[in-house]
Design a protein around this nucleic acid. Structure first.
Lengths: 154, 154
DNA sequence: CTGAAATACTCAGTGCCCTGATTAATTTGT
DNA sequence: ACAAATTAATCAGGGCACTGAGTATTTCAG
């Protein structure tokens, strides 16, 4: 009687979008390497030698999740993990040759997949799609991490 | 050297959007009931007595996931599960009074949360947001379940 | 210089999400 | 009528995502 239309719920839409993406990734990109794993490889191509926490920040994964993802990539020999001699708390991460090769291969496939995924939208709509999602996601993240208060509370 | 900009990857955006939603849901709606759980409650308000598989279809969850979600809702006393006397394979699902109450309460909070979540967009942009995401998700699901071939292969 | 606070990482626990294999019940083809 | 195919649900297994608590190391305040 009081049921609601889930098609007007952004969270529901977001979940369906991600599921659809997951499926397409599996068939068009890789069954071994997932999209978050690719994001980590990509971050380490851009900035070799990052520590674990910073990689998580770059790709939007929390401390626990990034630890798991990195452990999997390490087990598969795609990256190396060494203690920072300057700061014994950190591990510095660097892709192996195999990791670099994998990233190169997947970059090509990912581009193809993105084209297929976004094919239902015109070029103008694709820009809008990115912009609207980015604005909503950024704003929600902002709610979580409020800017520094003007006067530090004591 | 060959790193890619993740902000142009719809899968990455979709994941960030869902994460942002997850956080906001947790703070504004409920720490007990998740968004997928609410979707199941909602489906059973709309159509009491559905079987498990059909609920999964309605809310977009696969057979394994829907089984887990329903088992959790059952443990919390929000729904009942009885074997279909007409078809011994099925379980028929129905909300308890407690389940109905919970759905009613969360419906209000969810509406508030959706407003906050979408606040960065104008009304026109919100419509566009829904439409673009829906089109992409629908198309990708269509790739997965291709329409019946004209001639059934044998 | 030393105790307190902050930081990087790990671990335990919960929940979502998918696939492939298995089990039980029903439907279908002959 | 009955074997074969289909269907609903379960189970095992892998991966993502978050929180709260714990450990080790570094930094900071007095």
């Amino acid at each position: 009687m009081a049921a609601v239309d889930l098609a007007t719920h952004p969270g529901h839409l977001a979940r369906r979008l991600q599921q659809a993406h997951y499926l397409l990734w599996n068939t068009m990109v890789s069954e071994e390497i997932t999209s978050p794993q690719f994001a980590v490889l990509n971050a380490l191509v851009a900035e070799p030698g990052l520590d674990q926490r910073t990689v998580g920040e770059r790709v939007g994964l929390d401390r626990s999740t990034i630890a798991e993802v990195i452990s999997r990539l390490g087990r598969r020999g795609l990256l190396d993990k060494v203690r920072d001699p300057q700061d014994g708390r950190r591990f510095l991460l660097r892709l192996t040759d195999e990791g670099l090769r994998t990233h190169r291969k997947l970059t090509v496939r990912t581009a193809r997949m993105n084209q297929v995924f976004l094919a239902p939208l015109s070029a103008a709509e694709q820009s809008l799609f990115f912009e609207l999602i980015r604005r909503v996601a950024d704003a929600a993240e902002g709610l979580r991490n409020p800017a520094e208060p003007a006067v530090a509370p004591r």
